[in-house]
C-alpha cells in the first residue's frame, strides 16, 4: 500500500432532512460539514468532541449506516461514498465496529456463540466445528472462556459485554475498526481494561482504529493522531501528543481545561481564576465566520465574518483558528 492511507475522507458532508407535520419542505440539518481526514493502516485516529459535534454521524457515514450528502470516502481501493450505504461484502468484512452501549448492542435473544459467530456465518463458509474453534479462540483473546459460549448477554457485566462485542468485531480480521465511545458506559476500573485490550489487539493484528470519544485524555492514551470536532467541523487535528499537551485551538484548550485536575489544590487555583458563567444561550450554530466564535474567549473581529481555514501548527497537524495563523504567519497548508 505504501504511503497511501487506508481510509481517506475528503470534504465529507452528512445531512439529515427533518420534516415536521406542518412543513411541506424538509429542513436540512448538517451533522458533518466538510470533514477531511485520513487514517494509515494499523494506526489510530482519535476523534473527540462534545454531544452534537457530529462525531457519531461521521462514524455512521464511514460504516455505511447513513448516506453521504457530498464528498468522498475512499477505503483501500474502494470508493465508499458512491455506494450509497450498500457496501459489497468485500468492504463490509474489512470495516467492523464496536458501539457505546454494551447493553443494547448485543442481541438479547442470541447466545454469546451466536453473536460472535454471526460475522463468520455471513461472510465465510466454515464448517460448524471450524467456526466453534475460532469463536473459542476469539473468546480467549478477550479474556473470556468457552464456558461462556451458551450464555446470553444479560448474564454479563458491562465490561464483559464490551469484550464480547470486541470479539465479534475482530472475528473477520478487519482492516479498520470503528469504535464509537467504546468505554464511556463502563466504570472507571473497567475502562482501562478495555483500552488495554484494544491496544494490545491493535498491535497484534495491525488493525487501524477510528476511535470516537468525548474524553481527550482517554483518546490520547491509545491514538496516534487526534481530531477535535465542533459542530460538524474539524477544528484541530494533529499528532496525539501535540494536541493533548500543546492544544492550539481555543476549543481544544477549553475541553482540556474543563476536566477537573486530580490535585484538589491545583484545581482550586484554576477554579479561582474563573467565575460562575451564565448558561450558554446564543445560537450554537454560527452561520457565518468561525463556528466557535460565540463561545470563544479570544474571539477576533474577523472571526465574525470570515471562517478560518486549517493553519499548520508547530509540532504537527493543523488548527482552524486565526490565532494560530497569526502566530505563524508564513505557513498555511493542509
Amino acid at each position: 500500500m505504501g504511503d497511501k492511507p487506508l481510509i481517506e475522507i475528503n470534504d465529507l458532508w452528512v445531512t439529515y432532512w427533518a420534516r415536521s407535520a406542518f412543513q411541506l419542505r424538509s429542513k436540512p440539518f448538517h451533522a458533518v460539514k466538510g470533514v477531511s481526514l485520513s487514517i494509515k493502516a494499523g494506526q489510530t485516529l482519535g476523534i473527540v468532541g462534545e454531544s452534537g459535534s457530529g462525531k457519531s454521524s461521521l462514524a455512521n457515514a464511514v460504516l455505511g449506516l447513513v448516506p453521504v450528502e457530498s464528498g468522498t470516502i475512499r477505503f483501500d481501493q474502494h470508493e465508499l461514498s458512491a455506494m450509497k450505504t450498500r457496501y459489497p461484502a468485500a468492504v463490509r468484512k474489512q470495516i467492523q465496529a464496536v458501539f457505546q452501549d454494551p447493553f443494547s448492542s448485543l442481541n438479547p435473544s442470541m447466545t454469546v456463540e451466536d453473536i460472535i459467530s454471526e460475522p463468520l456465518r455471513v461472510h465465510t463458509k466454515m464448517s460448524n466445528d471450524q467456526r466453534r474453534d475460532l469463536v473459542v479462540e476469539l473468546l480467549e483473546l478477550v479474556s473470556l472462556s468457552k464456558d461462556h459460549l451458551k450464555r446470553h448477554p444479560h448474564e454479563f457485566s458491562g465490561g464483559q459485554r464490551q469484550r464480547i462485542a470486541i470479539a465479534s468485531a475482530l472475528a473477520l480480521q478487519p482492516k479498520l475498526l470503528v469504535l464509537d465511545e467504546p468505554v464511556s458506559a463502563l466504570d472507571v476500573s473497567t475502562q482501562n481494561q478495555i483500552i488495554n485490550l484494544l491496544y494490545e489487539r491493535r498491535d497484534a493484528l495491525g488493525i487501524a482504529y477510528m476511535l470516537i470519544a468525548h474524553d481527550l485524555a482517554l483518546v490520547h492514551h491509545i491514538s496516534d493522531r487526534i481530531a477535535v470536532m465542533y459542530l460538524g467541523h474539524i477544528v484541530e487535528e494533529g499528532p496525539a501528543d501535540r494536541v493533548y499537551k500543546n492544544p492550539a485551538h481555543p476549543y481544544t484548550k477549553a475541553l482540556l481545561e474543563a476536566v477537573p485536575l486530580l490535585d484538589p489544590a491545583k484545581q482550586r487555583a484554576r477554579r479561582a481564576a474563573r467565575k460562575a458563567q451564565p448558561a450558554y444561550d446564543t445560537p450554537r450554530d454560527a452561520q457565518v465566520g468561525c463556528p466557535y466564535k460565540n463561545r470563544c474567549a479570544q474571539v477576533l473581529p474577523k472571526c465574525q465574518t470570515q471562517a478560518p481555514t486549517p493553519f499548520s501548527v508547530k509540532g504537527g497537524g493543523v488548527a482552524s483558528c486565526f490565532l494560530v495563523a497569526d502566530a505563524q504567519p508564513t505557513s498555511e497548508a493542509l
Partner: peptide
C-alpha cells in the same frame, strides 16, 4: 480508582487497572 482515571497519567497502555469487577 485514582490511578485508573484517564487524566492520571499520560502514558501509553497498558494502563493501570483494578482487576475484576
Amino acid at each position: 480508582l485514582l490511578s485508573a482515571m484517564p487524566h492520571a497519567s499520560d502514558r501509553k497502555p497498558p494502563l493501570p487497572t483494578i482487576k475484576g469487577t
